[in-house]
């Protein structure tokens, strides 16, 4: 079936079998391999993308259900000129080790900051409860999200 999406601002389409998940379509048909295939059952969160403003597990969503909707993936964060403030903070504060959880962590973090620019530590932990990291122990990830939140809300305030 023909599935048409807007991915990172660009109209894309692919003819996929109905049993294709959004994750599979992004990775195999659209060449966007940033979102990762981890547990494949919605527990680990490394496949997280944002669909019409809400983060979700792309491994659990059929591509057919994403037809006509707007998707943001990790590839949509950086511009050719610059990294996204979240990516900079993750890099500067050493929030990633092996990096496999990174695309999902960053998309969950973006989804949080889009809705709540200055989250508390508790709110960050709550927002990341669907993203597993087996390396960092989460501390630096939480610090990086707070750092990016300050950066983004400072920029919004014109500082």
């Amino acid at each position: 079936m023909l599935v048409k999406l807007k991915v990172n601002g660009e109209l894309r389409q692919a003819d996929v079998p109905p049993e294709t998940t959004l994750l599979k379509m992004l990775r195999e048909d659209l060449g966007l391999t940033g979102a990762k295939l981890g547990c494949d059952v919605g527990d680990c969160g490394t496949c997280t993308v944002i669909v019409d403003g809400d983060s979700l597990n792309s491994c659990l969503m059929l591509a057919a259900k994403a037809n006509g909707r707007e998707i943001t993936t990790i590839e949509g964060l950086a511009t050719s000129a610059d990294l996204h403030p979240l990516q900079k903070s993750f890099e500067e504060l050493g929030a990633l080790q092996c990096g496999f959880c990174g695309p999902g962590m960053l998309m969950s973090a973006k989804n949080l900051l889009d809705k709540n620019p200055e989250p508390s530590v508790h709110e960050i932990k709550d927002a990341l409860s669907g993203n597993l990291c087996r390396c960092t122990g989460y501390t630096k990830i939480i610090e990086a999200i707070q750092d990016a939140g300050r950066e983004l809300s400072g920029a919004a305030a014109g500082n």
Partner: peptide, 9 residues
Amino acid sequence: VGAVQTRNL
């Protein structure tokens, strides 16, 4: 229920 991503589905 679940986590943010599963609650959005």
